[in-house]
Amino acid sequence: MESSPTQEFEYLFKLLMIGDSGVGKSSLLLCFTSDSFEDLSPTIGVDFKVKYLTMEGKKLKLAIWDTAGQERFRTLTSSYYRGAQGIIMAYDVTRRETFTNLSEIWAKEIDLYSTNPECVKMLVGNKVDKESDRVVTKKEGIDFARECGCLFTECSAKTRANVQQCFEELVLKILDTPSLLAEGSKGNKKNIFKDKPSQSDATSSCC
């Protein structure tokens, strides 16, 4: 649970986290927004958190949507691809199946449901703290990211290694993309926070 005070911002960006169940998406998000670690119960449907940042002199508000990876929730979560400027594709370096499913399942979901042709995608390998159990090498991750045309990083939500950099790198790439920057601008009429930003700051967990 996090309660943020109302803050001013100039840009709002929507980020989406996808990947198999149990790879650590929710823990990554908690680590980034609260700098803490918990072995969280499985996400039911979708959850979200809000994070304020200042980067390159711009005040940013990130709405980060966390999705359940179970197959039954896929129709429900497919709605949240719409309009996302950034998408994080997460896998667990200790479970090869979660890496394989990125190309078998999740990349196809992005093609189907993403409505933003220029959205920035980032491949994230989590749980690198379990080096002795690793089954997906860093090189495999790099090769897949290059093939997919997306950013790549490895991190650990448990040790908090590289998590902050992961999200910041994604946001920097969004800021470097003019069409995405324009979409996130507060002046953009499509921006859902334009009229009532003060009511949108509270974050809460499911139910």
């Binding site: 979200f48 039954r72 719409r82 409505t115 139910c207």
Partner: peptide
């Protein structure tokens, strides 16, 4: 089966969730 959402309803749902913090749709389905 889950809800059939057109783009306008998706936008509305998202605004609703962000405004209220409610993520009941997942629980309903589960």
């Amino acid at each position: 089966e889950g809800p059939l959402l057109t783009e306008d309803l998706i936008r509305e749902t998202e605004e609703f969730v962000l405004r209220t913090g409610s993520v009941g749709a997942g629980c309903s389905q589960l």
